[in-house]
Simulated assay, not measured.
Amino acid sequence: MTADASLLIVEDEPKIARLMADYLQTHGFGTTTLDDGNAVMPWLEEQQPALILLDLMLPGQDGLSLCRSIRQRYPQTAIIMVTAKVEEVDRLLGLELGADDYICKPFSPREVVARVKAVLRRSQAAQSATLAVDDPNAPVQLNEDGWQAIAGGQDLGLTAVEFQLLRVMMRAPGRIFSREQLMDHMYRDNRIVSERTVDSHVKKLRKKISEVLPERDIIRSVYGVGYKYQPDE
């Protein structure tokens, strides 16, 4: 999902908005430009862009509050924040707001195009993975809103960490995750934990699954490497 994707540029500096629009259009993207934060949510009620380039400082509703509102109402829409305030970067990418990426002013048009393409690729991959997780024929179904894993019609009663582990592996069936990679997904606060902690959580997760699906071994260990989700018999 790159060329022909529809993009929304929210930028109140006309020269910057025109520069981004012109350069993105030459690379095959369709663009719309808005210069007032108050116009964004009404526009989104009528349109569905693949990605929004959202300036931090805007007249009307500011970029931070807009990012939060967009995430709540349109969670599948990718967002790249555009800012001259480097000290805001951690907030822009944090769980509080959930921006997919950021661009700091001043920037080069090539950087904008490269970041847009990269975010769209990730967004498309994530949406495909979500479809795989929601497969009704999978041995385990995930209710991500309720943080539940259902197997054989039963709630497995997973902890938050166990649910995170299962979700990460289910989004990439057959992929082997190292313990370090799994730790990164388990603990977003960068706490220091040992690889044995990962092994302990995986052991508990496998036990809960086997109690409901005794003949299925869907979480498999790969000696010396890590773990993978393998739903096939």
Rank of each mutant, 00 (worst) to 15 (best):
E45K: 15
D35I: 08
Y23D: 11
Y227T: 11
R188S: 09
E45T: 12
M186V: 13
W43L: 08
H27T: 14
V119M: 04
G94S: 15
L24Y: 01
Q25V: 13
R206V: 10
K203L: 07
K105M: 04
A126I: 09
V222P: 01
R110D: 12
G157F: 03
E13F: 07
V212K: 03
G98Q: 05
L165E: 02
R171L: 11
P173E: 15
V161I: 15
V82G: 00
V140M: 10
K105V: 04
A126S: 15
S178W: 06
G63Y: 00
D217G: 05
L158Y: 04
P59S: 12
Y187A: 10
D12Q: 06
Y102W: 06
K85V: 09
Y74D: 14
V119N: 02
F29C: 03
D134F: 02
W43D: 11
G226E: 03
A3V: 12
R91Q: 12
D12M: 09
Q76I: 09
L54W: 02
Q127L: 15
L58F: 03
G94P: 06
L95G: 10
V222H: 12
D135L: 05
L53D: 01
P49T: 08
W147L: 13
I52W: 00
R188H: 14
I16H: 00
E13H: 03
P59K: 12
V161P: 02
V212Y: 01
R216H: 12
Q230E: 13
R188F: 13
S65Y: 00
M170H: 13
P49L: 12
K117C: 09
A149G: 11
Y23C: 04
L93A: 07
M41E: 15
A118C: 05
R216V: 08
Y229H: 05
S194K: 03
N190E: 09
L205M: 07
K203T: 09
R167W: 14
D62A: 01
T33M: 06
T32S: 08
I9H: 03
K203I: 04
M183Y: 00
I176E: 05
L213P: 01
V212H: 02
T130I: 15
C104N: 06
Y74E: 09
P14N: 08
R73K: 15
L158T: 06
I70H: 01
D22L: 10
Q154F: 06
W43R: 13
I219L: 07
I219E: 01
D101G: 08
V225N: 13
A138H: 14
G224A: 12
L8S: 02
F163N: 14
L182T: 14
T83G: 05
D199Q: 07
I52E: 00
L205Y: 02
E88C: 05
H185I: 08
L142E: 14
R188V: 12
T83D: 09
P42A: 10
M170E: 13
G63T: 07
A114N: 08
L64D: 03
T130C: 11
D232G: 04
G94R: 10
L19G: 01
R196E: 14
E111Q: 11
L19S: 06
A3E: 12
D184K: 12
V198D: 02
H201I: 06
Q25G: 11
F163S: 11
A21F: 02
